[in-house]
Design a binder for these strands. Structure first.
Lengths: 141, 141
DNA sequence: ATAAATAGGACCAAATTGATCCTAAAGGTT
DNA sequence: AACCTTTAGGATCAATTTGGTCCTATTTAT
């Protein structure tokens, strides 16, 4: 349960690479894919999603590529993960739209809501800047 | 990300039904499946997994069926979910065995670990007894 | 013009999920 | 012993999701 997919992993690796590049440098998707060991065409899709959300800027044509869309300290891990994996939702019933038939009587819902909130809180508390630092923090959390 | 599968949902519904049955009453899988609106053969597999872990007792033959393996207050939501979905692991890298190649340098690991611990803590804090209560608590958490 | 790059859609293989079915084994009943 | 009821467990299968490729636009610098 709760496993991050490869897409999510790749997304994180890719954007961390960008954050580690010299500020303002335009990076090619081929370059990023190479450095992070991710299939290039697959990573391209991921960066398309990033671009749509403004997490990265994309430039087409000769000399084109990607840069971070915001300072890395302003991009949260949650945004990156949700960009490619969709919203963090431990149980489909939590979805706003068409509720499940068990909605009214379901005592499990509040638990999933709590899980969701906790996870969101943690992932919102970590920025790409945090992750891009070369040195590990003194004591792993 | 993090969606519970149907198997997990069914598992929870099934064991809550058992917990709501008169104590000691042997329930047929057909009965449980019927009441919880779950395909019977599928639910049977789920209860097999429960039985292996001692979450339920199974009795074969005429008059056979299932009872709770422990008082419902001693069965946690985490146990039920993990029984059918496997351990709660937000990132494969967290697995003890064969670590990923990015292990040493990966700054994301501690975050996933924290997520895992938080979720486990929440699910460990909820018992089937809690969920089996007919009345909702005053304020949904 | 042309070459270099991303955008986006179509497509496809592998893995996982969500089941079903069949036979075996165990335990009552007659 | 024969028989019925019930779970155990393996095999199988369809649908969905995941992981990935490929091809054709479109944009932009030279």
């Amino acid at each position: 349960m709760m496993e991050l997919t490869r897409k999510g992993e790749y997304a994180i690796r890719g954007i961390i690479f960008l954050a580690r590049s010299p500020k303002g440098k335009i990076a090619l998707i081929s370059e990023i894919a190479d450095a992070t060991d991710v299939p290039q065409t697959f990573l391209a899709k991921i960066f398309q999603a990033f671009a749509k959300l403004g997490l990265v800027n994309s430039y087409r044509g000769t000399g084109g590529g990607f840069t971070l869309g915001r300072p890395p300290g302003m991009i949260t891990l949650r945004e990156v993960v949700e960009a490619v994996e969709g919203p963090i939702m431990p149980n489909r019933c939590l979805m706003g739209g068409r509720g499940c038939e068990h909605d009214r009587k379901c005592l499990v819902h509040p638990v999933w809501r709590q899980v969701q909130e906790e996870v969101v809180k943690i992932l919102d508390g970590v920025t790409i800047e945090d992750l891009a630092r070369q040195e590990k923090p003194p004591e792993p959390v």
